[in-house]
Each structure stands twice: as C-alpha cells, then as structure tokens.
Design a protein around this nucleic acid. Sequence first.
DNA 1: GACAAGAGAGAACGATCCGTCTCATCCTCG
DNA 2: CGAGGATGAGACGGATCGTTCTCTCTTGTC
Lengths: 192, 192
Amino acid sequence: MRRPAEETRRHILDVAGDLFYSRGVRAVGMDLVIGTAGVANATLYRQFANKDELVTAYLVSRNEHWWQRLRETAAAAPSPRARIKALFDLTRQDMASPGYRGCATLNITSEFPDADHPAHAAAVAHKNEVQTWLSEQLREAGDANPDDTAGKLLIILDGAQVLAAAMATDTPGDHMIQLAEQLLDTRLPAPL
Amino acid sequence: MRRPAEETRRHILDVAGDLFYSRGVRAVGMDLVIGTAGVANATLYRQFANKDELVTAYLVSRNEHWWQRLRETAAAAPSPRARIKALFDLTRQDMASPGYRGCATLNITSEFPDADHPAHAAAVAHKNEVQTWLSEQLREAGDANPDDTAGKLLIILDGAQVLAAAMATDTPGDHMIQLAEQLLDTRLPAPL
DNA sequence: GACAAGAGAGAACGATCCGTCTCATCCTCG
DNA sequence: CGAGGATGAGACGGATCGTTCTCTCTTGTC
C-alpha cells in the first residue's frame, strides 16, 4: 500500500475539514475525526503529529483550494476590476450555499487568538496574501492608493461573510457587492 | 452576608468575561474562572447553573454595558447622523485599546455555531437590535431606504472589527470611518 | 512465496473538564 | 447569644480529550 498513504491523508483532511468548518475546531475531538473518517487511530497520527498540525493543514489546504478557484474564474476576466469582481462574486456564491459558516480563516483567528499558534499564523498570512492580491489588481487598474482601497475592500468582504454566517441570511451578499462596486466607482478611473 | 450575593455574582461575571473575551470561551475552563475569581466552586454554581448560563450572562451583560455607553455618547449628539457617527467613533476607540479581541458577539457566534445555543441566540438578538437602531437613525435622517443602509453600515462595522482583531492592527478603524462617511454622504440628504 | 510496511481495531494513559457533594467556617439577623 | 444561610476549600465522579501503544491482518514488492 504505497499509494493509499497520500490518499488516506487527503481523505482524513477532507473529513476533518468538513467537521472543523461546520462545528468549530475546538468542538470537534480527534475521536470524532477518526470515527467519521473510518480510519484507525494510528493511521491519523502517522499522517499528522498533533491536532494543531491537523488544524493548520486543514486551513492551508482550504486556502489553497480557494486560491485555485479564484485563479480559475479570474483567468477569464478581461480587466483587473473584473478580476476583483470575480472574487466578490465567488464569495457571494459561497455565502448562498447551504451550510455556510463564514470565512474559515476568520473563524480560526477567533478560535485561536494566540498569535503564536501555527493555525493563527497561517490565517494571518492568508489574509495578507489576499490583501496584497487586491492591491496589485487595484494598482493595475489605476487606483492612486491601492493599499488603502484594498484594506477597505477586505473590510467589506469579511464583514459581509461574518454577518451572513452569524445571521444565517444571504442579504449581506448583495450589500457587499453594492458596497464594493460603489467604492471601486469612486476610486478607479472610468473605463475607455 | 445578604448583600455580597449580588456583588459576588457581578464579580464572577466580570472575571469570567475578561477571560472569555481574551482567550475564547471554549479555551477557558470553569476551574480557571473559579481560581481567578478567588471564589469557591459551589459559590459560582449557586449563581450560574451551567457554563452555558455563565457564557450567556457574560454576553448579555457585555452588550448591556455597550448600549449604555452608546446611549451616553449619543445623547450629546445633535442629529441622527451624529449619533451614528458616535457609534463608529466608539468602536474605533475600542479597536485602538490594548487587548482588543474583536466584537464579543461575533466571537460567540463563531465559537457556538449551533443556533439553538442560548449564547448564540443572544448574539443574534443583539446584532438585530443594533441594526434596528441604525435603521431608526437613518430613517430619521431622511434615508430613503434605511434598512438597506443599516445592513451596509453593519457590514462595515463588523468587517473592520474582525479584521482589526485578526491582524492586530488599528488601520481598519480609519478605513471603517471613511467607508461609513462615504456611504452616508451618498444616502443622506445634505444638511441645512 | 516471504517480508516489510501500512492499515484497522482498540486498550490504555494522563490531563482536563463540567458538575456534585461534603464539611468546617464565618457573617448576619433575630 | 444562637440559628440559618452563604462562603471557602477541596474531594470526587464521570465524561471527554489528545496521545501513545500493542496486536493482528492485509497488501504490495522482491
């Protein structure tokens, strides 16, 4: 069984990810992950040394997947502004899907406030990457102060996500789109 | 000791609140609350039947205190728009204070995703009250669609809080103020 | 066909956690 | 002064948690 090693790791990560995301990390015990994955105790601990390591791997994997989705949809966008819109559309789509529980990255920072925790560090790193990506798109689109606008877009993005999750509504999705459009209209030069 | 009963309850609630807020509810055990409060085990459980009850009382108490602060500062405001601005100024002030961990209400919804949990219900109720308050101020200020604007203001407010806590920066505070001002400028009729 | 490696099943450990209980003490009120 | 009630200190139980360990069985490789 040479191959299944990687497969098993992926399977455990998927199962743990679903549980962590839907119920919260601290509310999910390792026994539950093991039982739900239908895997042996030793098998999990051969792939992940700690729960902390499993949690960090969950967040990293989820963020990688998110980047992949964004790049796919952004690739078809003709302009940097369209790429930014693709990000917001993608987020609104997530918010409307059943079982939406908000941004996994933000939930991690809420559950693990200690900045030294590896999962917390991974979360902060991801948010920084997103902000950098936004800033690059904005600069390319002609924004005179891209860092500033990127910070504001991130506020709109995360605020809508956290509210949608808390209130179990998707109206923040529409508000988010409108706010972002309005902000971009005032910051970006008119096209053509 | 007839009087101390209420005093003790308040003391326990304050101590537990500080711990819950700074470290997260699930990360704080009852033993730690008991030890930090310098109180006997039975004393705590005579005031609060469960941990759930203590957590809910913590959130309710904190929100009551927040409303009190808002009403105090808003009382001096001459217009509904000034009252809204008072809310944002108050939030920015909180964000700049040391040990800021974001909005306690949002943290609760993140730690207790189950909508049936009493603390989660209290959190949702509070967010609804704030949105209603905002909507009332906006209607009074002449907003044609106060509910819509209130939802957007809440996104800005909560987004900035969650980002400030996660990234341990207070720049979201400035962004938040600017976003709110800009939104109000486009929604409210010009004064005088 | 033999062997090493990984998988499953599960026991077991120490720690922690929430909550109940006992008991001696101290304060307050009658 | 005496009685009642709340308090502090702490033992205790059952549950769960994260983690380590053993033991057997399967499976792919040589």
